[in-house]
Write a protein that binds this DNA or RNA. Structure first.
Lengths: 242, 242
DNA sequence: AAGTGGTCTAGACCACGGG
DNA sequence: CCGTGGTCTAGACCACTTG
């Protein structure tokens, strides 16, 4: 048998759980020593994989007893902000998100409506401002208000704006996001925002402020997303014990 | 030298970062091979510790270059929902949170205003309902609406209600929370809720629905917390690359 | 006592970034 | 090319749960 990487083991384990061929009737998985007999890997690799499943909420492990599968949440209807951190913000799953309207322009530092949490800029700094109005299954879903650092991202084409910005930046410019600081709040809608959601001014909206950094620690964008509060739910699985 | 556990290494590294004795002027930490010379540990232990620092947002690591410290966010003013998962919900840091009013009663299944995401109950199931009105620095801050499973938690004394429920359950009943499913939304305030926050009905509130499970996978409580949207910010650090 | 997951060691090789 | 972090192995011992 060939060697397996951690990600391959994760995939195989998930497959076995979904097929219901791995766990017994009580949801108990084979012990780690038994699983080692199924795949040609070391215990370290296996445990890294099991750890990923734990952080994703697929299983939980109990010292002295074993590993058990959990029932699944409706991930398809939720925005997963959880530990796995697979890809981007909301283009997760098979969601049908489209950009119905957008504006793009260059602004200066003083015109930004908010600023990143950590980085300081000089007054002559410019940003590429992007406002996007996006729908989920043709219903108004979110307003994305982003500022990109031109020295880092270069030009942004119209084609990129339609879809997932981070996917486009990775494919076309080999820019890979390394980590993100997120700040989640509830706000009151402005009149303009409310009009898009067909709500009233002052009504609630769920907001997510993101500061996105490259793998080398350089800030490439900061944004604020306003969600229709009737449609958006952020989901997180939090593992407390080691 | 004595052996060091991962948590001890984490503590020492954080101390070194805060003292500014560990990183150089550019924020670059010693290489892993150099750090191994400072502490009597194996590379595995060191990397587990560095991984924790990465997930907490203290540092970032770059293959081929090294590890670098990040500037810190104002953790004291934020609710950290992030990866660290050290203890409980919001009693984190030195926050001055107090319960100014609460009600406790036994209800039946049909009376619950919401239900957990995964578990099914029979119609004869009862819950311990707890509503708590809590302040931060003597200002109205949150309304905590919780249902505890009596078969799991037993009785809840008045002393427990005043402070952190999970801390009390752990100390007095040796019940340890293993993992939590979280669902974050923005809602409109009811008239009763708005009165506590001195806001108007229909104005925004940030809500967090928690399903809390013991280490053995048993649900012990489910809750919904309504925050004053002017005061609450959830913070999260998301690491995307391996 | 037996079996489980949790921690830790020592060592090897790989993949990436920068001179 | 060299030094960096990333992956992986084989093995040992510890801590916890259950019978």
């Amino acid at each position: 048998m060939e060697k397996l990487s951690i990600d391959q083991v994760v995939a195989k384990l998930i497959q076995g759980i979904e097929n219901k061929t791995l766990a017994n009737a009580e949801g108990k998985l084979p012990s780690e020593r038994e699983l080692l007999g199924l795949y040609p890997i070391s215990r370290y690799t296996l445990r890294q994989a099991l750890n990923q499943l734990s952080k994703m909420g697929w299983i939980y492990q109990m010292q002295g007893r074993g590993s058990y599968v959990r029932g699944q949440n409706n991930h398809s209807t939720l925005i997963d902000q959880g530990d796995l951190g697979s890809n981007e913000d909301l283009t997760r799953g098979e969601k049908n998100i489209q950009t119905v309207h957008y504006t793009k322009r260059i602004i200066t530092y003083g015109e930004a409506l908010f600023l990143p949490s950590q980085k300081q800029f000089g007054p002559e700094q410019t940003f590429i401002e992007l406002k996007r109005y996006r729908t989920l299954d043709n219903k108004p879903y979110l307003i994305d208000h982003s500022y990109y650092i031109p020295e880092v991202v270069g030009d942004i084409s119209d084609a990129m704006v339609r879809g997932s910005m981070f996917e486009a930046l990775e494919k076309e410019k080999q820019l890979q996001v390394g980590f993100i600081d997120k700040f989640i709040q509830s706000d009151a809608l402005t009149a303009t925002q409310a009009e898009f959601f067909r709500l009233e001014e002052g009504m609630p909206t769920l907001t997510v402020r993101d500061d996105s950094y490259l793998r080398n620690g350089e800030l490439l964008a900061f944004s604020k997303i306003y969600y229709d509060y009737r449609l958006a739910t952020l989901y997180m699985h939090k593992k407390l014990v080691k």
